[in-house]
Structure formats: C-alpha cells, structure tokens
Design a protein around this nucleic acid. Structure first.
Lengths: 204, 204
DNA sequence: ATCATTACTGAACGATGTTCAATATATTTA
DNA sequence: TAAATATATTGAACATCGTTCAGTAATGAT
C-alpha cells in the first residue's frame, strides 16, 4: 500500500475534519469514531494519528471550525442593525439560528470535554472570548461612563443568558424547538435586561 | 457463586447509583464504566443489567437524583427571602452553589444524551419542569395582570439565563470559577431583567 | 540498479457495553 | 433428611472502541 503524496498532510486534515463534521451532524458526538472517519476519507485509522494527536485533538479542531462558522454568522447579522440594542438582538437571533440549523455540531462544542490533565489550548479559548468581545463592542456606546469591569460583566451576563436559552431549547429541555419561539426568549432577555440597566444607570 | 438475597434488587440499585455518583464526581462521565461500578459494589457486570436496562438508564437515574438534590437545595434557599425578587436571587445563588459544589455530577445532567431513538422518560422531564415552576411561583405576585403564557415566558427566560451563566462558568469557558464571582452575574441578570420588566409593565 | 526515505497500513492491545448459558445457592417438595 | 425446583449471580464471549507501531510499499536520491 501507501499512495505516497496523493494528498498533502494539510489536505488529509481537511478531509478528516469535513468527514467528522458530516458524521457528527448525522449521529452526534457519540456516533463519531476514528474508524468511521478513516473509512469515509479512504485512509486507515493509523493515518489519522499522523495528522492529529488523538481523537480529542480532532474533535477540538472540528469545534474550532464550528466556532468560526458561528462567529461569521453572528458578524454577518450586524450589517442590518443600527442601535446597540437591535444589534445585540440580531446577534442573539443569529446565535439561535446557527444552533438550530446545526444542532449536533453546535452541541458538541459544549458537550466535549478534555481529559483531566489536558488544558484547553489558548487559540481555542480565544475563539470563545471573541464572541464576548463582539457583544461588548455593541454595548460600549450604552456604557461609556462605566468601568471596563462593569462592561465586561454586562456583556458576559447577556451572552451567557442567550447561550443558556439556546442550550436548553436545542437539547429539548424546554417544550419549544423552532427558532422563532426561541427568539421570543432571547429577545425578552436582551430587551428587559437592557431596559433594567437603563433605569439603574439613570438612578445613579 | 451467587450469594442469594444478600441484597434486594432495590438495595443493589441504590448501591450502584451511589457508586456511580462517586465515580462521576471523581472522574466525570467519561470515567464511568459498568465494570467500575460493579467492582465498587462487589458484584459483576451482569448484575447491573438485571437492575438497569443499560448504562444509559443507570446514568438517567443518577441524573434524576442529582436533579432531586438540586431541587431540594433550591427549595431550602426560599426560607430566608421575603420578596419575589430576593427569592429568585436566592434561587439563582443556590443553583450556582450546587453546581460549583458538585460540578461533575451537575454537568452530567446536561452532558449526557440518550441514543437517537430513545425518548426522555416523562418522570425525568417532569423534574426539569418543576424547576421552572418554582421560579414561576415566585414571580406570579409580580405578574398577576399577565397571561399565563407571558408568565411562563418570563420564568423560562430568567432560569435559562441563570443556567447559561452557571454552565459556562463551571465548564471553565469564562475566566471565573469561584461561586462568589458567578453570583455577581446571576444577580445582575435577575435584577436588571426584573427592573426592565417593571418599566415595560408600567408603560402599558 | 541500488539504496534511503517516506507514506501508509493493519494487526495487535486493552478497555468498553451488552448478552446469556452455566452455576451455585435457597426454597419447596417428597 | 434428600431430591427437586426455583432463583440470584456469574463470567466468558462478542463486537466495537482509541491508540500504537513494526512492517511494507512506493517514491526520490545516488
């Protein structure tokens, strides 16, 4: 055997990640296996380990791609909004839309956990933080008089809230599942939280 | 072998669930295995399958116990509060406290997913719904003029938000991890959301 | 044409969830 | 008390999993 250089290592990586995405979106993280990926790209298991440290590493990279796609979709949603409030609303809806369109892939980002000793690599943590920073960017016009710590708190609170709604809805723990009904919850969260913040800021 | 009737089936169930809890809180869901549980209770793997349909079923029951303990803790927190707002604040803090005290067990409730065909049993869904109803119970005094649908929306939004904060904090996706810092977020969410709701209700 | 390098394989290992014929004990019957 | 029946428990077997790595086949260099 050995079809030397039919694909570069980088190509094999890409193929493996794409195959893994397919399998996960079809059967979830539980349905993913090294042998399935290998079979789908026409190589054997061993080859995967020349290109990834192990399956956890591969999943981490699939998750990175998911976060990238999610981030892109959320950034896109900002083209059609004008005020901080409507922009955060748009972001929340885009988040929900992505999650309902790619439920298993999105879910894997939060389902997957590294083994005890392993650390989440910095480049992965960065991708998560970028999401919060994008919220922060929208909100700063409303919070110019506030400390950075306060702005950080507000962005995190809102975005965690949106995530919580999305998470419980997509995993079927609420009775709702269609995107439209979930938007009602995220809209409510963002509108009321911001309205409440406005009153407490005035009262100072 | 066969130490007939040394323990009743119900006792073996209890022992297995307790052992599983121990293992999960030590090593997480990934560290749990049928053989480990069996070894810890002094039986062999086969015995577990006389008492549970399969490992998924066992995990589901561990999760049920976790939800029961969580619910009890949250109910307890209601003895020291007087207003709807402070009661929901107390509930949020109790939720965070439980999650930080039992991170792996709590996490498993949301990490674990049944296989494609399997349905979440009604008694499990009930336990989740009871949590929302407890929030609803606190909030109805503030929302007496509102439709039931609106009350439901508000409770779900707030509690999902609290869950989202808790979830991202406990799994290390925020930079914070101590309970006190997480309380700041849940307090902020609840206080601002309710304040915002008060203004929109007045404006009607 | 030979050698060295490289790309890839696939058998092997230990561990997993799950099943079920076999077995050892307890209870009932004679 | 002894034999027969019933039942509680076992543990070997199966397929599948992640992971490793000696071996092999094809390429590039000499």
């Amino acid at each position: 055997m050995a079809r030397r250089s039919e694909h570069s290592k980088e190509q094999i990586r890409e193929m493996a990640l794409a195959a893994a995405e397919d399998i996960v979106e079809a059967d979830g993280l539980a349905g993913l296996s090294a042998r399935k990926i290998a079979k789908q790209i026409g190589y054997t298991v061993g080859t995967l380990y020349l290109v990834f440290r192990n399956l956890d590493d591969l999943v981490l990279h699939v998750n990175a791609r998911t976060l990238d796609a999610l981030f892109a979709k959320i950034q896109d949603s900002l083209h059609k909004c004008r005020t901080p409030r409507t922009c955060v609303l748009a972001m929340g809806r885009a988040y929900v839309d992505f999650a309902t369109e790619n439920p298993k892939r999105w879910n894997m980002v939060f389902e997957h956990q590294l083994a005890e000793g392993e650390e989440v690599p910095y480049w992965f943590a960065d991708k998560v933080n970028m999401m919060f920073q994008l919220v922060q960017l929208q909100l700063t016009p409303l919070l110019e008089s506030q400390t950075e710590k306060k702005i950080d708190l507000v962005s995190k609170t809102i975005w965690c809230g949106v995530h919580g709604i999305c998470s419980l809805a997509v995993t079927g723990k609420l009775d709702i599942s269609d995107a439209e009904s979930i938007h009602v919850l995220t809209d409510s969260l963002i509108n009321n939280y911001l309205a409440g913040m406005a009153t407490t800021l005035k009262g100072e």
